[in-house]
């Protein structure tokens, strides 16, 4: 015991230094797990790339899925530090349940489009009314029961009084990315998908889109939160702030998102 205490006294400055070094390196280089809605697939990939360039010490991992599924996972202690939902009501519910560190921040408004591969149809000439045409046999939308983009697709079809005639042709994607994939593989001729996916490299080369007027559906207000577990995670805070940076905003706009302060709401 005595030896140890002598050792501690002698080297206590050194030990303190090591301890500080370890702790501070921890706070400089942290790992964050981001769970993001599938409509962010391409935009978030780019934002993360830019963020990593600016913060090379931070390790960022992104998991994409449907907003509802991620919500359930976070309720059950999934190890996600940031949650980007396609529907702001999900993170707001987490916030109300005390599962977040701080308030829900709106980050974008999404838009829906009619999309079709060039080999099938020229979507720029399509309107919602055309979906009733006999030669269009399969139309993909995200599941309106739980996918935000699916809900808006249903709303748009209903406000045009087309739902009943179009419904027998509908196939439902589990999330908006799977919906896009159904059309991309040609298994459905047309899809109602996120503008952010239609503008991605993979889809914009293969097909065209027509922007569905946002007067036909309620706004796709999207929000994100830092989860409770990341309360002390500096990198999570940094990333949250980064979303307001010019770089991140530019990327979001390029993928067709309307930013909250520009939406006039």
């Amino acid at each position: 015991m005595q030896r140890i205490s002598v050792f501690l006294k002698k080297y206590n400055q050194v030990l303190l230094g090591i301890l500080l070094a370890v702790l501070s390196s921890e706070s400089f280089a942290e790992k964050i797990n981001i769970a993001a809605a599938a409509d962010l697939k391409f935009a978030m990939d780019e934002i993360v790339t830019q963020f990593k360039k600016a913060n090379p010490a931070d390790d960022v991992e992104v998991i994409y899925g449907s907003s509802g599924k991620i919500f359930t996972q976070i309720q059950n202690q999934a190890p996600y530090d940031l949650y980007f939902s396609a529907d702001i009501s999900y993170p707001e519910k987490l916030e109300a349940a005390g599962l977040t560190a701080g308030p829900t921040k709106p980050y974008a408004f999404g838009r829906i489009v009619l999309w079709s591969p060039k080999t099938q149809l020229d979507a720029t000439q399509l309107r919602l009314e055309d979906l009733t045409r006999a030669e269009i046999k399969r139309i993909a939308i995200a599941n309106p029961k739980h996918a935000p983009y699916g809900k808006r697709a249903e709303e748009a079809l209903r406000s045009k009084k087309l739902w009943d005639s179009v419904e027998p042709k509908l196939v439902y994607g589990e999330n908006i990315a799977q919906t896009a994939q159904f059309v991309h593989t040609g298994n459905a001729q047309v899809g109602i998908i996120a503008l952010s996916l239609a503008l991605s490299d993979a889809l914009s080369k293969q097909g065209n889109y027509w922007l569905i007027p946002d007067t036909l559906h309620s706004p796709l207000k999207q929000g994100f939160v830092i989860t409770k577990r990341a309360e002390a995670n500096q990198a999570a805070k940094k990333f949250s702030n980064y979303m307001a940076s010019t770089e991140a905003r530019k990327i979001m706009v390029r993928y067709g998102f309307t930013l909250p302060d520009e939406a006039g709401q």
Partner: peptide, 22 residues
């Protein structure tokens, strides 16, 4: 499947949908 009620929406998918819809 494309999750069509009565055509391809089997019980396992229906459960998944219930969970997603909370």
């Amino acid at each position: 499947g494309g999750n069509i009620p009565g055509v391809t929406r089997v019980a396992s998918v229906q459960i998944y949908d219930h969970v997603e819809a909370l």
